[in-house]
């Protein structure tokens, strides 16, 4: 475990050092890439709670990512057009304040996760994978054909939303926000993993029958984990939308759900820093592979295949040795 702790610290520091270097060297685009990696890592950390700890292979987490993104898009859209959001009984003014947007994004992605989870968790295994995938597609098609917020065109937000005391348009300051949130989510994950709830969730992944016999309601434990997981991914979606100042249905696409899983496995399944390592590696790979050839997806696919077949445990597993039996 100590080697893994050291490695985790190195990853956390590395993700901080690269943009700081880029800042001093005047390379704003590298900061943008690092911000992207941090946000995708945050989404991966969310998924890792359900997938790594709970063994719930969700192929529909893009739904929560997209809900978070649209929470940002819709609120900021109403703020920039000065047209309050009419909900029939009452109206809500839009907002450009990040904390309010984050809260909204988290509440709505939690609700979405509650609805999807309540239905999907009635099943398990392959059924669960396919059902979450199908629910993700349902959100995708709805976002495309719903005309109020741009449909397939998506929504452009002219100016990045604000955070009290910071200039969010400055790449390094926006990176700092994302980095702090990522670290907070990692701390939360670590706390959850060690809590009685986390232990029950982990046990339910390995031997659900025994957990049930002890009197712990497996379904409810899983549902809570799924909701927390979706909430964190939703927050990442709101940040991602702010990074691009743009939301569109592509945030709901099933390829994105697949890529979140890729981050986790690339980094190391059920490792605390797995998604972080995976997302950073993925961003870097695409940046470099993309320069090699128009057909770089072939190389990416081959590399992923190699990791699954021959480097089980991903990046962290390879560097930090085999996983010590879980507490």
């Amino acid at each position: 475990m100590r080697r893994e702790t050291l490695l985790n610290a190195a990853i956390a520091l590395g993700l901080l050092a690269v943009p700081l270097w880029a800042w001093s060297a005047g390379e704003p685009f590298t900061i943008t890439l690092a911000t992207r990696a941090a946000i995708l890592a945050l989404a991966g950390v969310g998924l890792n709670l359900a997938l790594g700890l709970g063994g719930l292979v969700s192929l529909g987490h893009a739904a929560f990512f997209g809900v978070g993104g649209y929470a940002m898009g819709i609120l900021a859209h109403h703020a920039q057009t000065f047209a309050p959001l009419d909900l029939g009984l009452f109206t809500v003014a839009g907002t450009k304040s990040m904390p309010v947007i984050w809260l909204t994004a988290m509440v709505f992605s939690a609700l979405a996760a509650l609805a999807i989870g309540a239905l999907s968790l009635r099943t398990s295994g392959v059924y669960f994978i396919m059902i979450t995938l199908a629910f993700g597609q349902m959100f995708y098609y709805f976002a495309i054909s719903w005309p109020a917020y741009g449909g397939e065109d998506g929504l452009s937000i002219w100016v990045r939303n604000g955070f009290p005391g910071l200039n969010t348009l400055d790449p390094i300051q926006f990176f700092a926000i994302c980095y702090v949130l990522l670290m907070a989510a990692l701390v939360l994950s670590a706390v959850i993993a060690r809590s009685p709830f986390g232990l029950a969730l982990n046990a339910a992944r390995q031997v659900p029958q025994r957990v049930e016999t002890v009197g712990i309601p497996v379904y409810r434990v899983r549902l809570v984990a799924f909701v927390i997981s979706g909430t964190i991914t939703g927050l990442a979606g709101a940040l991602f939308a702010d990074l691009n100042r743009f939301v569109s249905p592509s945030m709901f696409s099933w390829q994105l759900s697949g890529e979140l899983i890729v981050f986790i496995i690339l980094g190391g399944t059920a490792r605390l820093f797995g998604p972080v390592a995976g997302a950073c590696l993925f961003v870097a790979l695409e940046h470099w592979l993309g320069g090699l050839s128009d057909y770089w997806h072939i190389y990416l696919g081959a590399l992923l295949l190699g990791v699954v077949l021959f480097a089980r445990g991903g990046l962290i597993g390879t560097l930090a040795g085999r996983e010590v039996a879980h507490d």
Binding site: V57, Y295, L300, L305, L309
Partner: peptide, 24 residues
């Protein structure tokens, strides 16, 4: 012998290879 997670990822990688290979 692997779990579904590995299967999902490996076959996802195969899609990338097949799609871009066909385009190539």
């Amino acid at each position: 012998p692997r779990d579904h997670l590995d299967q999902v990822l490996a076959t996802f990688a195969l899609i990338l290879i097949f799609s871009e290979g066909t385009r190539w």
